[in-house]
Design a protein around this nucleic acid. Structure first.
Lengths: 235, 235
DNA sequence: AAGTGGTCTAGACCACGAC
DNA sequence: TCGTGGTCTAGACCACTTC
């Protein structure tokens, strides 16, 4: 199995620090020549390193060494910016889309609301050190946040909730699963359609127990490292 | 892009229920003929469905439709068996290996113990409805559990801890990240080397705050759906 | 304009699983 | 034993990125 040896060889170079995080690999044809193999076999090796989170691909741009994954605590209300800064990374966000619309089916299921309930949909692209790492989609129940459309959507939602509506998150229900990037989300992340991804879904309640919004977060799977601490109930 | 159309086509068949969970696909050569494409392109489509968790592969055995993923709460002390039964699935466990040894490097890092600390290493293979879904490796600090080797390792560790040592889990720190299956772990799961996986690492403390053990759980990534509820601290 | 990655073809051989 | 999946080759064309 050539591709396993190629994997190990590349892996060693990374672990030894010979390939800096974020740095670009040589062209596939050159690498294939270096390893004295065909392009297909080389790509097999690269794909496995990708699914292992060691390297990543930008569509039509090539292969890169993955930077350190961001530690992400799903039980933390810290917003993206705060989280990144704590980890000494440089965050940036772009608003992809913001609209008020009747709740689509997938969000209605998460929010448990009836058809035609008005929600705000916010789509944001998250960068870490200038690399696009996640697309986050928020659905916010409009009823609880009058005139939300006039707020600054680039700012943290948590912050707007607290400052302008006196609403805090108090309970969050989250799901985490592997998925794959498709269509516009893949494009925004500069990923090839079908790239492996981590999907974090959250449903949030406020201090009065009301369900106020939900998140769908599509992360490049090598960019995130879910971690948390749980105190267990003693039986 | 043929492979995207093939993906969608297969996906529709699954969603429509025409392909039952667990059922086997026709041979790759036949499928390729059906879709009027080459085997390589067909495998491209299958690989993407695999990384999306819709289908899975057993090494040299073929492709299968993924059963429903098991809901897994990392903050729950329920053992594997209880968890499976709650979800109306049929659990089974096999002991792969049990030994007393000086703590290996990776475990020492998690446990924060010194070199040569004696630990029990337990490797177990978990089945759901007769499908191998996870390899779990436990490292237990031997000092706290004298004569653990005489216990029944197929039984739940949680249960043994409680009944025989009066020790309960009280806090757990967990990490979740994507990984890939290699070597013996891949073999035990009937997976091809390099298959995508979900790695759950846990470090557990007892009711006295002592660090007592850690888990490394390698899951077939389509078999698990991490979910939990967190109550947030009000600022 | 050149080079690159994305996609695809039409084969091939081998070792293993199923029968 | 037969068919299957695992692996590999040596090309090809196109559209996009980069220069």
């Amino acid at each position: 199995m050539q591709y396993l040896k190629i994997m190990e060889s590349i892996n060693e170079q990374i672990e030894a620090g010979l390939l800096a995080p974020g740095s670009k690999f040589p062209a596939e044809r050159k690498l294939a020549e270096t390893f004295n193999t065909s392009r297909v076999t080389l790509r097999e090796a690269l794909s496995l390193l990708e699914s292992d989170g060691k390297i990543f691909r930008e569509d039509r741009r090539g292969w890169f060494v993955s930077p350190t994954a961001l530690a992400y605590d799903p039980t933390n209300t810290d917003n993206f910016k705060t989280m990144a800064i704590k980890a000494k990374r440089e965050p940036r966000s772009e608003l992809l889309n913001a609209e008020l619309l009747p709740c689509p089916r997938d969000a209605a299921k998460l929010l448990g609301v009836e058809a035609f309930t008005q929600v705000y949909k916010l789509e944001r692209l998250r960068f870490l050190d200038n690399r696009p790492v996640a697309v986050t989609i928020n659905y916010v129940i409009a009823e609880y946040f009058p005139e939300l459309q006039e707020k600054d959507f680039i700012a943290s939602l948590t912050h707007t909730y607290k400052e302008d509506y006196d609403i805090l998150y108090s309970q969050t229900r989250y799901h985490i699963r592997t998925s794959s990037l498709q269509g516009e989300i893949a494009q925004a992340l500069r990923a090839t359609s079908g790239s492996p991804a981590m999907l974090v879904e959250r449903v949030n309640h406020d201090q009065n127990g009301r369900l106020i919004d939900c998140d769908l977060e599509y992360w490049r799977h090598d960019a995130i490292n879910i971690q948390s601490v749980a105190t267990l109930i003693k039986e």
